[in-house]
């Protein structure tokens, strides 16, 4: 069990994703929505490392998103949503004999789930912002951007993961 390098890699990747997301992705002013680099990275890591890894990583990432500027919502909203998404994505192993489209499907579902859950949670706790028409306008764009990001992020995550923290199970079963 080589847990430490894997945890460190996860932290490093998510921190990078966070910086890219906050400093770069939202500055591109793409129409409709913002590419969610953090979400796609989280899903890639969760699918590789499992549910436990996914939900803890999701919680920590969400908490940083809640706290890092600019944020004005109640702390814990992203933490809750990303914790659940990380857990769920971890249930889908991206390993053996899966088609390349499988991660794309998971990311697309995660993208829909995240946007809906985040805005629903906001409505439940009574924070203004998301109305149904706004969500409906943002949602398709969010899914498209996240799906476009998927191959790149998954390649980076897989490449770094096999180099830094090779999974003994994977190697034994002959997958890289």
């Amino acid at each position: 069990m080589r847990t430490t390098p894997r945890v460190l890699l996860t932290l490093a990747l998510l921190l990078t994703a966070l910086v890219v997301q906050l400093g770069f992705a939202s500055r591109l002013h793409l129409p409709g929505a913002t590419p969610d680099v953090v979400l796609v990275t989280l899903v890639a890591l969760a699918m590789r490392n499992g549910s436990l890894h996914g939900c803890v990583a999701g919680f920590l990432t969400g908490l940083s998103l809640d706290l890092a500027p600019p944020s004005d919502h109640a702390v814990g909203r992203w933490a809750l949503v990303l914790c659940l998404v990380g857990y769920l994505a971890g249930l889908f192993d991206d390993g053996v004999d899966r088609s390349a489209l499988f991660p794309v499907g998971v990311v697309a579902s995660a993208s829909v789930l995240t946007t809906l859950a985040y805005s629903a949670l906001g409505a439940v706790i009574g924070e203004p912002g998301a109305t149904w028409s706004m969500v409906a306008r943002v949602l398709p764009w969010a899914v498209i951007y996240d799906v476009v990001l998927t191959p790149f992020v998954f390649l980076v995550v897989a490449g770094l993961a096999t180099r830094v923290a090779p999974d003994p199970l994977r190697r034994r079963s002959g997958v890289r």
């Binding site: 109640a74 909203r77 706790i125």
Partner: peptide, 21 residues
């Protein structure tokens, strides 16, 4: 895993209620 998930979700709820409005 499920236990940890439940704990984290509870923590998130606590944070939200602490910070809420």
């Amino acid at each position: 895993t499920r236990l940890i998930l439940a704990l984290l979700v509870l923590t998130a709820f606590t944070l939200i209620s602490l910070d809420y409005q």
